[in-house]
Amino acid sequence: MTDAVPAKNQLIAGRILSGLVILFLLFDAGLKLASPETAIKYTPPGLGWPLDVGTMYMLGILLLIPTLLYIWPRTAILGAILITGYLGGAIATHVRIGSPLFSHTLFGVYLGVMLWGGLWLRDPRVRALIPLRTGASA
């Protein structure tokens, strides 16, 4: 059953979950755009990305635009899809260089689950697309 309007506690939980993801992504994009030298300084070596200002600006823009789309309810699903693609690239990068699984490689998965979980809790369109079934299935 998908409700047209989420229950109050569901909406609050969704907003909190989404808000945490949004804060992290805005911080990450903002750091790359406002202080690319700092982002370069704290980027682990060996990722395979050029560690230059232009790359940091590009990554910052590629993260900022979908995050802004995710914030606005009318375009939140598009933003979530685009952020999922960005996170997929981050996961692939960490798999390629053999980063620690739970702390680095799966971090993008954790963010993605929070991203979609928050959206599922606050948006009936997503609940209609991804219904959770309880009880015995037919």
Rank of each mutant, 00 (worst) to 15 (best):
A39W: 03
A76E: 08
I16S: 02
L23G: 14
A4T: 13
S99A: 14
T67G: 02
N9C: 00
L129T: 11
M56A: 08
I83Y: 08
S35D: 15
L51N: 11
G108V: 06
A4V: 11
M56I: 09
L64T: 07
G30P: 10
K8E: 12
I12D: 01
G14S: 10
A7F: 00
R127D: 15
Y110M: 13
G88W: 09
V126T: 13
L25D: 07
M58Y: 10
G79A: 12
T67Q: 03
G85E: 07
T55H: 12
I61L: 10
S99W: 01
Q10W: 05
L23M: 15
S103E: 07
F102T: 03
T134C: 06
K32L: 01
V126F: 12
T84I: 14
L59K: 04
A7W: 01
W120T: 11
T93Q: 11
F102Y: 14
L51V: 03
L51H: 04
A138I: 03
T43D: 00
N9S: 11
M56P: 09
L23H: 02
T134S: 12
L132I: 12
I83S: 13
G98F: 02
A13R: 03
F102V: 06
I22E: 04
M58A: 12
R15S: 07
L69E: 00
P44Y: 07
R74S: 09
T84P: 03
W120E: 08
W116Q: 04
I71G: 04
A80S: 11
N9A: 09
Q10C: 04
D52H: 04
Y86L: 09
R15D: 08
T93K: 05
G117Q: 13
A34F: 12
L23S: 08
P45I: 03
W72P: 01
I12W: 14
A39M: 04
A90I: 05
I16E: 05
P36D: 05
G30M: 03
P66R: 05
L87P: 05
G14F: 04
A90D: 00
R15M: 13
P73S: 02
Y110R: 06
E37R: 14
G19I: 00
R122G: 09
T38L: 13
T2D: 14
L132V: 12
F107I: 04
S18I: 02
L101F: 11
G14R: 03
L82M: 14
Q10L: 07
L11E: 04
L129E: 13
K32Q: 05
K8C: 01
T105A: 07
V126D: 08
T2F: 13
R96K: 10
A4G: 14
L132N: 05
A7N: 05
T2M: 14
L101A: 10
S99E: 10
G89E: 06
M114A: 15
D123F: 12
G19H: 01
Y70H: 09
Y110V: 13
V5I: 13
G19N: 06
L47S: 11
Y57A: 04
K8F: 00
A4M: 13
F102H: 07
L64P: 05
K32C: 02
G112D: 02
M58I: 09
T55V: 00
K8W: 00
L129G: 15
L115H: 06
L132T: 02
A13H: 10
P100S: 03
L33I: 02
I65H: 03
M58F: 13
A80Q: 03
G118M: 07
W72A: 15
P36A: 04
T43W: 11
L106V: 11
T134A: 12
L111I: 15
A4F: 08
P6W: 01
P124V: 09
R125Q: 15
